[in-house]
């Protein structure tokens, strides 16, 4: 089982986290189009390689984390607190 290096708690089993998904900007609700909004809701790049994603450490610090992970190797290049930017 892969370890995720939580900036607050240190390396923890991936099962302690909830995978939130690929991180992307939320379109402006006032001006968005159905095409743009549904791309935001449903379409993900799912690359074989580095990807920016959000994880929630539900069984630990209960913080949302911005994680950069290589999906080919599971190497985590960075993991920081989404709100404060705190890194380990």
């Amino acid at each position: 089982m892969m370890l995720l290096p939580c900036p607050w708690c240190g390396p923890r089993n991936a099962t302690e986290f909830r995978y939130v998904g690929e991180a992307g900007p939320r379109p402006d609700p006032a001006s968005t189009t159905p095409e743009e909004w549904r791309r935001y809701l449903f379409m993900h790049a799912n690359p074989c390689g580095p990807v920016k994603e959000t994880w929630y450490h539900r069984a630990g610090c209960r913080r949302y984390l911005a994680v950069e992970r290589d999906t080919a190797t599971n190497e985590v290049r960075s993991a920081v607190d989404s709100a404060t930017g705190v890194a380990r």
């Binding site: 959000t54 929630y56 209960r62 949302y64 989404s82």
Partner: peptide
């Protein structure tokens, strides 16, 4: 928490 932490810290 998701909205507070990721959208409106």
């Amino acid at each position: 928490e998701n909205w507070l932490q990721t959208a409106h810290p």
